[in-house]
Amino acid sequence: MVMRRINNRLATQLNKKVEIWHTVASTARNELGQKPVEDQLLDTVYAGIIPQTGSLLTGRTADTDLSRTTHKVIMRYRDDLTPDMWIMAEGVRYDILYIMDPYLNHERLEIFCEVRI
C-alpha cells in the first residue's frame, strides 16, 4: 500500500519530456585515421526538474554577469546513467554532477545537474 502511494506521487512529478545524451566514438575514421567522438541520443523519458541553487558570478570582463544554477532532475530508476552524460529539456542542457538512488530502493533517481550556458 505504501509503495503504491509513492509511485503515484512519483508519476505526478514526472511532467517534462527530456532527452538523455552521451558521447560515443564514431564508427567511421576521419582523414587522420582517428575515430572522432559524437553526441548521441540515449533515450527520451519523462522527468521532473526542480531548481536547487543559483549564484551570480560578477566581476568579469566588461561587467558581464554569469549565473551558476543547479537543478535536481527526478526520473524513474535506470542503471545506465553516468556523470559524463547530460540531459536536454526545452532547449536547455543540464550537465550531470552526480546521481543518487534515494533509499537504494531502485524506484527513482535524483540527478543533480548544472545548467550549461
Rank of each mutant, 00 (worst) to 15 (best):
R78K: 06
N15W: 07
T27H: 06
N15T: 13
R9E: 03
E114G: 12
P83S: 04
F112Y: 15
R68Y: 06
E90H: 13
R68N: 08
T27I: 07
L104M: 10
W21C: 07
H106K: 15
N7G: 06
Q34N: 14
L57F: 11
R108G: 01
G59R: 09
T69H: 11
V18W: 07
I49E: 03
Y98M: 12
P83R: 08
Y103N: 12
N105G: 04
P102N: 10
N8S: 13
V37C: 07
E31K: 13
N105W: 06
K16D: 05
F112M: 11
V73E: 00
R78E: 04
R78I: 02
L10A: 11
Y77R: 06
L41H: 03
E114I: 15
V2E: 12
Y103P: 01
L14Q: 03
R4A: 14
R60D: 01
Y94L: 12
M85V: 02
T61K: 15
D84W: 12
P36E: 08
N15I: 06
K17N: 14
L66S: 13
V24P: 02
Y77C: 08
E38Y: 07
Q40S: 09
R9W: 03
I96N: 03
S26Y: 04
D65F: 10
A62R: 15
L81H: 03
H71N: 07
T44V: 09
D101F: 04
I49Q: 04
K17T: 14
I74M: 08
R29T: 15
T53G: 00
G91W: 02
W86Y: 15
E110L: 01
R68S: 04
R29F: 09
G54P: 02
L81Y: 03
R68F: 10
I111C: 12
